[in-house]
Design a protein around this nucleic acid. Sequence first.
DNA 1: ATCATTTTTAAACACTTGTTTAAATTAGTT
DNA 2: AACTAATTTAAACAAGTGTTTAAAAATGAT
Lengths: 204, 204
Amino acid sequence: MSKDTTTEAKIKEAAKRVFTNKGFSGCSSREIAKEAGMNVALVNYYFRSKEQLFNVVFHTVMDDFMLSMKDVFRMKQPLETKVRLFIEREYEFITKHPEIPGFIVSEMNRCEVGDSNKQFIMDEIAETGIFEEMHQAQITGEMRKIDLCSATLILMSNCHFPFIAKGLMQEIHHIDDEKYAQQLVLHKQYVIEMMIGYLFPAKK
Amino acid sequence: MSKDTTTEAKIKEAAKRVFTNKGFSGCSSREIAKEAGMNVALVNYYFRSKEQLFNVVFHTVMDDFMLSMKDVFRMKQPLETKVRLFIEREYEFITKHPEIPGFIVSEMNRCEVGDSNKQFIMDEIAETGIFEEMHQAQITGEMRKIDLCSATLILMSNCHFPFIAKGLMQEIHHIDDEKYAQQLVLHKQYVIEMMIGYLFPAKK
DNA sequence: ATCATTTTTAAACACTTGTTTAAATTAGTT
DNA sequence: AACTAATTTAAACAAGTGTTTAAAAATGAT
């Protein structure tokens, strides 16, 4: 699991677990120290403050989050294959880290989070050239001519919301954790079917 | 706006604003009191505790949230029209209260929130008979035969996520509040087009 | 006007918060 | 071994937390 066993790394890993599950304002420095099995003062010894530790964690989480995304976008494959793979990989990744989408969207809406923390890595998506590729595919008629911001939105909505709204969905349909996990496997197939069908309408 | 001007109602309204924007753990009793222009002690005088006040607010917010939903589901209209209307009304309602979807999903995932607060009103959706109606429409072939939990998930994903992920989307596409509001108007049309096309495939 | 009741206030309660301090321990170097 | 620097600790700091108290003010009834 954790490749680095230094005190600093152990605190960072503990902070990652606590922050992603409870959010910045949902936990205390002492809770993080306890999770790491460390003294409270060590948190500030290595990271200066709770906020700076959060920034480091947030940055790391965003990096992980973007990694598989960027991989897919840079592949030498037809756009339709890329979209299909994107959905597959997103479900695969988030199934392993189900708390991450909710963590990211809620912390991105917190106005206290500095702009420098938000901007940095987001642009890496655009830098893969995926938007230009979509634009070209729209010109050739391969892809439906919809606004690319909406295309992003549709993709992310259907990949991330099912994990963010787990609690809500379980109450509506009265299903436990195990059943919901199965539901998501099934749901992924519907999402692929719907998204591909919509974004790449079969030529007549 | 506020029909009731009693101290109790003013505190409740202030709490609603603060809780929905910052979450339970993101604000203090004093912040709520200040927002209401009241003394801190009054919060507990009328609501016993921060948690009980939260429960009252949560209940109220859920009620508002469910209201237009239930209205649409109980209409005497073809299912396809209902789904179309559902999307229209959701965008209309959430545009007026953009903080609500994020508030609900994140608080539904907080394990400290008692089950009694979660269960109560959720069942009202099922009680409208919408799921039976969908099931019937699937038998007659009017509606695509997908799992009804997934149907719910797809609908909610595409209606709520665009508001929850506002901060994230604005960073990815570098757009300001006004531009994003316009984007959502456009996006709603794409969502309707995609959802109707998928759930109610044209008969050949 | 007097009284009891309700509402509002300022102050305090015990506890937690993020952070700092200064001493203790450990590790590394010569 | 002795000395220096890095690490870890317990303790304390001031400020903030939810909550309670007891007195003050406002209200309504007789």
